[in-house]
Amino acid sequence: MEPQPLSVRPYAPTNPTRPFPYTQADMTPTDPGNDASFYAPPRFVTHIDDNAIVNLKRYYDDNLPEMGTILDFCSSWISHYPPRIHDAVAKGEIVVLGTGMNEAELARNPVFAPGKDADVAARDRRWWLQDLNVDPDVPFPKLGGQEVKLDASTCVVSIDYLTKPVEVLSSIRHQTNQGGKVHLAISNRCFPTKVVGRWLEVNEKQRLEMVGNYLHYAGWRDIEIVDVVIGGFLNDPLWVVRATKT
C-alpha cells in the first residue's frame, strides 16, 4: 500500500510583530540543574516508537537534499536517516554533522562518517559536544579547514529541551544557504523535568505553535506543520515543524 500524502499546513504567529511571547519562567525546566550531568550516562535507546521511526525516515527520504551538508543538532547514537542519506554519505555526496551532549552516543552514530585517513578524521571529526542551553551559538562547521554552509538541519524530539531556542535556531539559520530548511521532529514523549516549563502546561496544538513561534522569531520563514503520524492508543504521534531560509 502506498503511503498517504502528509497533511501540511502553513503557520504564522497571530500577531507577528509583538515581542517574543514567552517568559523566562516559560523557558525554564522544572530541573534547571547541570544538563551535562543529566546526559552523562549513555542512553542507547530510541525515544519514539518503531512506527514513528519508519515514518520519520520516509519523511526525511522525501525532504532532505540529494547533496550538500546537513546538521543534526541535539543528536545521539542514531539520527533516523533513510538508507539514501547513508549511501550519499559513503559516496561523499552528503556530509552530515552533529552536535549533542553525550560523547559515547555521538561516536556510535554511523551517519557521522569520518575520513579514511586518521589525521584527516581527527581534523574533520563530524560531531562535537555542545550544551546549547549554555552556549546557543552553533559554530560554523569546518571541513578540510574550510568553513561550510548548511543545506538542511534536523532535530528529533529535542527542541522542547532548549531554553534558548530562538538563539540556537537563529545561529543555525545564519549558517544555512538561501533556500535551506530546518526540520524539527516532535512527539509527545519527554523527560518531564528537563523540558521547558510551558511545554507541560499546554496541549499538543499549542506545542506545535510554540515551535512555529521559535522559528519565526529566529528569522525563518515559510513555516509549516506536517502531520507525519496521527497518534493513537498503540502508536506515538509525530509532527515536523519546518521552515526555510528565504
Score class of each variant (00 low, 15 high):
residue 246 T to A: 07
residue 106 L to H: 03
residue 230 I to E: 15
residue 118 A to C: 01
residue 245 K to Q: 08
residue 21 P to I: 00
residue 20 F to A: 11
residue 115 G to Q: 13
residue 50 D to Y: 05
residue 101 M to D: 02
residue 206 Q to C: 01
residue 192 P to G: 08
residue 153 S to C: 15
residue 240 V to W: 01
residue 47 H to F: 14
residue 244 T to H: 01
residue 227 D to I: 02
residue 186 I to D: 03
residue 120 V to T: 10
residue 74 C to M: 13
residue 150 L to F: 10
residue 111 V to C: 03
residue 56 L to Q: 12
residue 98 G to Y: 01
residue 29 P to G: 13
residue 169 L to K: 11
residue 187 S to G: 15
residue 223 I to R: 09
residue 72 D to N: 14
residue 80 H to Q: 13
residue 228 V to A: 03
residue 14 T to N: 10
residue 100 G to K: 09
residue 61 D to S: 12
residue 182 V to Y: 02
residue 31 D to M: 03
residue 114 P to A: 00
residue 164 K to C: 12
residue 139 P to A: 02
residue 29 P to W: 14
residue 26 D to M: 04
residue 218 A to G: 10
residue 227 D to M: 10
residue 79 S to M: 03
residue 170 S to C: 04
residue 214 Y to H: 12
residue 72 D to V: 07
residue 63 N to F: 11
residue 51 N to H: 14
residue 246 T to I: 12
residue 36 A to M: 13
residue 220 W to K: 06
residue 149 K to V: 00
residue 62 D to R: 14
residue 61 D to L: 02
residue 82 P to K: 03
residue 132 L to T: 07
residue 188 N to P: 01
residue 63 N to M: 07
residue 149 K to L: 06
residue 134 V to S: 07
residue 139 P to S: 04
residue 192 P to S: 10
residue 104 A to K: 13
residue 237 P to Y: 01
residue 85 I to F: 05
residue 121 A to L: 05
residue 108 R to W: 02
residue 225 I to P: 04
residue 137 D to I: 15
residue 126 R to D: 03
residue 222 D to M: 06
residue 224 E to P: 00
residue 26 D to R: 04
residue 213 N to V: 06
residue 115 G to E: 15
residue 19 P to N: 02
residue 79 S to T: 13
residue 241 V to S: 08
residue 153 S to K: 01
residue 52 A to G: 12
residue 36 A to H: 09
residue 224 E to Y: 06
residue 113 A to K: 15
residue 167 E to G: 03
residue 31 D to R: 08
residue 104 A to E: 14
residue 140 F to M: 12
residue 64 L to T: 04
residue 182 V to I: 15
residue 227 D to Q: 15
residue 58 R to G: 10
residue 71 L to W: 14
residue 29 P to D: 14
residue 125 R to V: 04
residue 137 D to S: 13
residue 101 M to T: 00
residue 120 V to M: 06
residue 97 L to W: 10
residue 109 N to A: 15
residue 228 V to S: 03
residue 43 R to N: 09
residue 185 A to C: 10
residue 110 P to V: 13
residue 152 A to R: 11
residue 12 A to R: 15
residue 245 K to T: 08
residue 150 L to N: 09
residue 176 T to A: 06
residue 190 C to F: 07
residue 203 N to V: 10
residue 202 V to A: 01
residue 98 G to A: 02
residue 119 D to L: 04
residue 212 G to S: 01
residue 153 S to R: 01
residue 46 T to V: 10
residue 86 H to P: 00
residue 36 A to D: 14
residue 219 G to P: 09
residue 242 R to T: 12
residue 4 Q to W: 02
residue 107 A to Y: 02
residue 171 S to Q: 07
residue 12 A to T: 10
residue 179 G to L: 08
residue 139 P to T: 05
residue 126 R to P: 00
residue 232 G to Q: 06
residue 77 W to E: 06
residue 181 K to L: 09
residue 83 P to W: 09
